[in-house]
Nucleic acid binder design. Structure first.
Lengths: 121, 121
DNA sequence: GATATATTGAACCATATGGTTCAGTATTTA
DNA sequence: TAAATACTGAACCATATGGTTCAATATATC
């Protein structure tokens, strides 16, 4: 279970780690497109684009269907819900962690004040 | 500018695409840790863990400081704000795209009703 | 039927990734 | 000062990635 989720995360974050693939997702958000369309838009060979689409498809972010000789790509079933949730959770962790640091700093300041007073005594 | 952002995205999403590194981030969200701590926790050589930490550091997600012989790792300055925003924007695109599809389906249904009526006429 | 179009697969290339081992160096600690 | 600890760097390995070219296949179009 955890393993499944982890490898799914691996796949989706890896898919998002390439500018071309992020661009393809944005493009498909506007309109479906063929491999030729995408290859043209991103100045790449058909074969190269096909690979990117394959990666996105593996990650569930894109689905494709071939009708006649043209393969049409569209956004896939995955909406990055879990990924968004992971990042949100991380951000909360981060906040909590730095709040702790703030407390430490506050504590230090308090002690300084106390020390100051002691020295003056 | 765009390039900078894109390569930053490349780096952070790539950093997140590995289960060990996501684990390290979660761990550091709980407490700072040395390379030895992390290597132990994730059953890996020091050298291996050092590399993962290096990737996270490159991405700005972790900072490290060496005091004496031990290097302490903590969460870095980046909170994944832009990454969260990118994903949110994508999710909206996705929703809009599928709303469009819904409209098409609605339209088809409407036509069917009309056709049905026509046939019955 | 001939030609053009759209994709596909295999093979190749350079570089990156995720890991290891092994031999250092620097710092504590006994 | 000797031994233990913590890290570091170089070198290596297998596999993945991001791209290409070239040849083949399937489908449309003239």
């Amino acid at each position: 279970m955890v393993q499944y989720i982890q490898t799914r995360f691996d796949a989706s974050f890896a898919a998002l780690s390439d500018a071309t693939r992020r661009g393809v997702l944005e493009q498909l958000g506007r309109a479906d497109a063929s491999i030729t369309d995408l290859a043209g838009k991103f100045r790449m060979t058909l074969t190269g684009m096909k690979k990117h689409v394959g990666v996105l498809e593996q990650a569930g972010l894109v689905t494709t269907e071939k009708v006649g000789r043209v393969r049409t790509c569209k956004l896939g079933p995955r909406r990055l819900t879990e990924e968004a949730a992971w990042i949100e959770r991380y951000r909360q962790l981060w906040d909590a962690r730095f709040d702790e640091l703030d407390k430490v700093v506050e504590e230090l300041k308090r002690k300084e004040r106390v020390d100051g007073r002691r020295k003056r005594e």
